[in-house]
Amino acid sequence: MSDRPDIPPDDSARAAEYVLGLLPVQEAREMRAELGQNAALRAEVLAWERRFADIAENEVEPVTPPAGVEAQIMAHLFREERRPWWQRFGLGQVVGVAGLAAIVALGVLFYSNLTQPLLVPEYTAQIVGEGDSLILSAALDADTGELLITRDIGTVTTGRAQELWLIAGEAAPVSLGLLAEDTETVLNVPQDLAARFEGGVLAVSDEPPGGSPTGAPTGAVLAVGEVNTI
């Protein structure tokens, strides 16, 4: 260890505070900028990460997570193969439409009393937050007004709510409802609103429990996505 260049104690302490998250926001920001220039400081930050991780490795007891967690992670990451049909559009629309037509035809043949008819969604959107911290897929079936939102990445902060908004043209955002904490949320969109999806934008805002008290977004915009027409 003597071969490692010595770093002034103040810098070492600052590196430790940075790793622990004890530095005020501004100082942490400056520190991060400095890390790009200062190799010794960078090495010290990494050394502290190791020292603290060693504490965790020694002191934290392993706890086997419930089996469902692994399944959910795998479904999250590797869902392409079994992605629902409304998300496959765009990859091979022609095949998709032809295949879908065949499925519908089969469905009609074999299940004459389908409770949920397979209808093609007219509008889809990927609603993405900064740094991909929140990613949602939305698909609207304009005939039924059913809007399906799938939570691909991100969660709802405890004690807060996420509200979905349609921004059509110059008009003020219109609330479409609150997003569930689950993977899927289904919202019912009234006909007059569904008609305004084309060329619109969907946005998710952070709101108090129960949603915006004012009818307009009050919290930070967490994610935004343009509506695509199929």
Partner: peptide
């Protein structure tokens, strides 16, 4: 009172002796 968490993984160049030191310190 710290405000936003400012913790990102740093990804600088690796120190050559880092791994040996890590093993000894652990």
């Amino acid at each position: 009172d710290i405000g936003d968490p400012d913790l990102v993984l740093s990804d600088p160049a690796p120190g050559p002796e880092a791994r040996a030191i890590a093993a000894a310190e652990a």
